[in-house]
């Protein structure tokens, strides 16, 4: 449970890239935690939404990109609409997903997804959403 905070990781290229894709300044966040308190999926996450932002603030990009949280977020916009500082966490999560997807690292397999969808008679919007959100 110990990390080294390093100058070169704070505001590193990778952090700036995530901020750029999200169009957001992570230092607006003052870590009140209201995002996590209201997040409907927080109980399934390994990093709470505020912890995702915190890790980005201290430059720990890998902790975020390797987390389950960024894939569990379903973009319900609750965090953003209630954030007292108006930090668009929804976009930050999307940016984190995008960073991985743009390296062609898919979160789910295409074949398996389609197969499951057909078996279950899943609504079309769910199928397309999964493909859009979780594959490159």
């Amino acid at each position: 449970m110990k990390i080294n905070i390093k100058n070169e990781e704070i505001r590193s290229e990778r952090v700036l890239r995530i901020e750029e894709i999200a169009g957001e300044n992570i230092f607006k966040c003052y870590q009140c935690g209201k995002c996590s308190a209201g997040c409907p999926s927080a109980d399934q996450m390994d990093l709470l939404p505020n912890q995702v932002v915190r890790n980005l603030q201290i430059g720990k990009v890998d902790a975020v990109l390797n987390s389950k949280s960024i894939w569990i977020c379903a973009s319900c916009f609750m965090c953003w609409t209630r954030c007292p500082r108006g930090v668009n966490l929804t976009a930050l999560f999307e940016a984190c997903r995008q960073v991985k997807l743009r390296e062609n690292i898919d979160e789910v397999g295409l074949k398996q997804t389609i197969q499951e969808a057909e078996e279950m008679d899943i609504p079309q919007i769910a199928v397309i959403s999964v493909l859009r959100k979780l594959t490159s």
Binding site: G33, A37, C39, D43
Partner: peptide, 12 residues
Amino acid sequence: VWGVDTLTGQTV
């Protein structure tokens, strides 16, 4: 009340 305990990292 739904909140969060940021010190333990859990929602409450």
